[in-house]
Write a protein that binds this DNA or RNA. Structure first.
Length: 270
DNA sequence: ACTTTAGCCTGTCGGC
DNA sequence: TGCCGACAGGCTAAAG
């Protein structure tokens, strides 16, 4: 479900309800997520006051004095703040009971998400190898160009590599490549420096715009406030196979790259 | 060092 | 109706 804009939308929706509150207790109904829930989280989190909530890549970092909870939504996860008495649904795996009388509820049918823990001074191994944030100055066309030299994998697969740049998932990879006029199947090492400059600009523009629109709603993405995202109607290629290109009316094509559906326009992208 | 594949899960949808 | 396969917004580990 979530790419960077959806995770950022979640962060912004959660922050007013979480920051300054204390976690009274945890209820773990389903511990078998992408990774087992570590004992450290169960031991350290209850009783702690939440200092801040940050996003790194698609992880949410909930900071407390002794350390931070790392939350990932996987493909189908949602986090919402609800009244404590809200009935439990089939895939409501974890509740953080807050001193406000509300619960932070983690729901995830496919269970590809996770809740992990790192001590305050540590960097979790899963965060250690991540590339730059796409909306930061550390990310630009030269970063893409330098890292792509000699690489034969497709530029779309390369763009989705979280060691290259974080936060660009399957939807926004197709959208950014369309906006930059680059064929998704082109070898990453065969894209020029100038075209990578354009691609980096489009990644920034599209992600920033998607955040401003509250993320993409495909199936059932909802923000912590229960509102849907409004970016879906802005998609140019994703999910539009055989529909006319919004620029040139050529039917949008779909192929599979790296086992992920990929959408592009044969006329606009080379 | 890079690339590809398998696998983690459940729900939904389309075809028969 | 129901069954079955394909597919779904992510990511890691292992194999090649």
């Amino acid at each position: 479900m979530p790419e960077l804009p959806e995770v950022e939308t979640t962060r912004r929706g959660l922050a007013p309800h979480l920051v300054g509150r204390s976690v009274v207790a945890l209820t773990i109904r389903q511990p078998a997520l992408r990774w087992p829930i570590p004992h450290e989280l169960k031991r350290h989190l209850p009783g702690q006051r939440i200092v801040s909530i940050e996003r790194r890549a698609k992880y949410l970092l909930v900071h407390t004095e002794p350390g931070s909870a790392l939350l990932h939504l996987g493909m189908s996860g949602t986090l919402r703040v609800l009244p404590a008495a809200t009935p439990i649904g089939a895939h409501d795996h974890i509740d953080w009971h807050l001193d406000s009388g509300q619960v932070l509820r983690y729901t995830d049918p496919r269970r590809f998400g996770c809740q992990l823990w790192q001590a305050r001074a540590d960097t979790h191994p899963l965060l250690a190898g991540l590339g730059p944030e796409p909306l930061s100055d550390a990310f630009n066309g030269d970063v893409l160009w330098l890292r792509s030299r000699g690489r034969s994998a497709s530029v779309k697969t390369f763009l989705m590599d979280q060691a290259v740049v974080v936060g660009v998932g399957n939807i926004y990879a197709s959208e950014a490549l369309f906006a930059a006029g680059i064929h998704p199947k082109r070898a990453a090492g065969a894209v020029s420096r100038e075209r990578y400059a354009r691609l980096a600009e489009e990644v920034k523009r599209i992600l920033a715009y998607a955040i401003a629109r509250g993320g993409t709603t495909l199936r059932d993405f909802i923000s912590p406030d229960g509102l849907p995202g409004y970016f879906e109607q802005e998609l140019f290629v994703y999910g539009r196979e055989a529909e006319p290109c919004r620029v040139c009316a050529t039917p949008i094509r779909s192929i599979v790259l790296g086992q992920r559906s990929t959408f592009f326009c044969t006329r606009c992208q080379h």
